[in-house]
Each structure stands twice: as C-alpha cells, then as structure tokens.
C-alpha cells in the first residue's frame, strides 16, 4: 500500500451506516406495495411508489456519502480495489440473471416446443393432447394462447437500436479516454452523446412495444413467444434505463468537477455496466430477434 496521502493509509471503514436500513424499508415497501397491488387487495400502487421513492432517496443519500468521502480522499487504492471487485461481481450476478432467461428460451425452443409438436419423446404428447400442432418457432403454443400475432422485423427498429447501442459504447469509450487525458470538456460532450444514444434506444424500444401491442397483436400474453420476447427485452430495457440514469449522474458529476484522470472508479463502474448492457443486447438481437 503506497501512501500518497496521510489520511488514507488505513483502510477506510465508515463508522455508522444510516442508509442501509432506509434501503431495507424502501425495498420492503416496494415489495409489499407491489404484492398487495398485484393481488388486487389495494386499488392503487401508492405504497409501491412510496417504496420506490424511499429507495431513490436512499441511493441519493448513500451515493452522496460515498462521493463525499471519495472526493475528500478517504479512499486509498485498496478501497478502490474493493469497489472494483464489488462492481465486477455484481455485473456477473446480472449476467447470471439473464442467463436464466436465455436458458429458458433455449429450453423451450429446443425441447418443449418440439416435444409438443411430436418430436423425440413427444410422440404421445402430440397425438394424445395436441394433435395437429406443428411445434415450430415462433409459437404461442398448441393452445394458441393470446391469439395470432406477427413478429417484429429485426431489420428495422431492432437493427437501428443495435447500431445505437454499439455507437453509445464507442462514445463512452472515447469519453473515458478523454477523462484519462484530462480533457474534461470533451468527456462531458461524449457523455452527453452517450446518454442521448441510450435515450434514443429506449424511445425506439417503447415505440416497438407500442407497435407490437397495437399492430402486431404481439403481447406478453402471446404464449411462450410473447413471454420470452417481452421478458428478455423488457428486463434489458430496464437495465438500459438504469444505465442511462447512472450515465446522467456521472455526467452531472463531471460537470461538478468530480473524478480525476488517475482515479475515477464511479465513472468506470458505470462504463462497465453500460458495456454489459450492450453485450446483452447483442445476445438478444441474435437469439430473440434474428434466429
């Protein structure tokens, strides 16, 4: 541990943490609020929204505290390494979350649907229960759940969106290089470009959903196709939203003069997250839209 600053040669351990308990309360309110709303036990999602608000309040408080500590040089390189590991493994957990859904997609396409259509061990399944069902993807199943639907053309909006997200990864990388070079103005410019690209992506995604619901009759209820399509793209969209918010936050922090060329963990964490979201999209584009 090399010491550049006398007040951070010890590993910084905060003495009291008031935000976690706020976070727990917020989380519980969100969960309980959502549960009673979903069960129609309560007409309005107000409790859930209050919970969300509490969580956002918590995040501002918590991150604010961390930023303050960070800006006042309380963190030595070892603390920085802890943060990095935290972020890396957090992203890994997110990867596994998506892996679960991709795995489900793989299973229904290669196992369940063919069986229902009479392939492999599904001979009797097809003749006894679903005779006449073909079992080809895309499908809403032998029960035609949700009625007939059409597919989103991958080479319109999704392709544009792919380009947008790829571009945003590039602009973000340029911003990062600029930060290392100490060109703050340039960083802010490229960050704004990244946020705009992300927001445009989200705009198109919403547009695509509206199109799907209104014109293609493709909904969450369109059998297994609708389920996998909307759950995968939906969770991805939520992650993009979160990523975009985080990008906005670091843009503002840049404007306020935060981050140093040699230490800017907050910036990097957001950048990793954004690249992760980008990679997930590539997976989606290939496995959900094209194939």
């Amino acid at each position: 541990m090399s010491q550049t600053n006398t007040n951070n040669d010890q590993y910084y351990v905060p003495h009291l943490a008031k935000w976690p308990i706020v976070g727990s309360i917020g989380m519980t309110m969100t969960a309980v609020g959502a549960a009673i709303y979903m069960n129609n036990q309560f007409d309005s999602p107000i409790v859930m929204y209050l919970g969300f608000a509490t969580l956002i309040f918590m995040m501002f408080g918590w991150f604010g505290e961390v930023i303050k500590e960070s800006e006042s040089n309380k963190y030595n390189p070892q603390v920085d390494a802890s943060f990095r590991m935290g972020m890396i493994w957090f992203i890994f957990s997110e990867v596994m979350f998506f892996a679960g859904f991709f795995g489900a997609l793989w299973y229904v396409r290669n196992m369940a649907v063919p069986w229902l259509g009479g392939e492999g061990t599904g001979v009797f399944t097809n003749t006894e229960l679903w005779s006449g069902y073909e079992g080809v993807w895309p499908t809403n199943g032998p029960g035609n759940i949700g009625g007939k639907f059409e597919l989103v053309d991958p080479f319109h909006l999704p392709l544009i969106n792919t380009v947008l997200l790829m571009a945003s990864s590039i602009t973000l990388t340029i911003a990062h290089h600029a930060l290392v070079d100490g060109a703050r103005k340039k960083v802010i410019g490229w960050l704004i470009a990244t946020v705009v690209l992300g927001a445009t992506f989200l705009f198109f995604q919403v547009d695509e959903y509206i199109e799907a619901y209104q014109h293609l009759d493709l909904t969450l209820k369109s059998g297994i196709y609708g389920s996998t399509f909307f759950m995968l793209t939906g969770f991805h969209g939520m992650h993009v939203t979160l990523g975009a918010i985080m990008l906005t936050v670091i843009t503002i922090r840049m404007m306020r003069g935060h981050f140093k060329p040699e230490s800017h963990f907050g910036f990097e964490a957001v950048a990793w997250y954004w690249h992760f979201v980008d990679v997930v999209w590539l997976g989606l584009f290939i496995f959900v839209y094209i194939i």
């Binding site: 489900a104 369940a112 949700g146 969450l220 059998g223 297994i224 389920s227």
Partner: peptide, 21 residues
C-alpha cells in the same frame, strides 16, 4: 399475474422448465 406461459404447455411452455431452472 401477467399471463405469460413459461410453465404452461398450452402456451408452448413446460412445467418441467421450472424444475430445471
């Protein structure tokens, strides 16, 4: 709650999928 068909054969899903996951 939202009408997806992951574990419903009629919609092309499979109850056994849940067991695998």
């Amino acid at each position: 709650y939202f009408g997806t068909s992951f574990f419903n054969a009629a919609g092309g899903g499979d109850p056994v999928l849940f067991q695998h996951i």
